[in-house]
């Protein structure tokens, strides 16, 4: 619309200042929006990469058990230590 209005405002090689200002404002807004999109998307990518790293984490909980070896040693009276 702004472009059409601007074109309508063209006459005899001169153009309305309002039309030019409107075009410049629109262009500035588009640039600002583009920068916002690029910036926010980069942040999202970083988060996504972190999530991927988390996916590789598998927490293994070790197990510990115990057992016993036992005996009673009765001395043999016939075996007299020297």
């Amino acid at each position: 619309m702004a472009v059409k209005n601007a074109e309508k405002s063209v006459s005899g090689g001169r153009v309305s200042k309002k039309a030019v200002v409107a075009l410049l404002i629109l262009a500035a807004l588009l640039i600002t929006a583009s920068v916002a999109i690029i910036t926010s998307n980069n942040s999202a990518k970083v988060i996504a990469e972190n999530n991927n790293a988390n996916n590789a984490n598998v927490n293994v909980i070790p197990a510990v058990e115990s057992a016993k070896v036992s005996l009673i040693i009765n001395p043999n009276p016939n075996n007299i230590p020297k």
């Binding site: 057992a67 070896v69 036992s70 005996l71 009673i72 040693i73 009765n74 001395p75 043999n76």
Partner: peptide
């Protein structure tokens, strides 16, 4: 879980 040899002598 237990190895029990009990009592004995050489």
């Amino acid at each position: 879980n237990t190895v029990n040899w009990g009592a004995g002598m050489v």
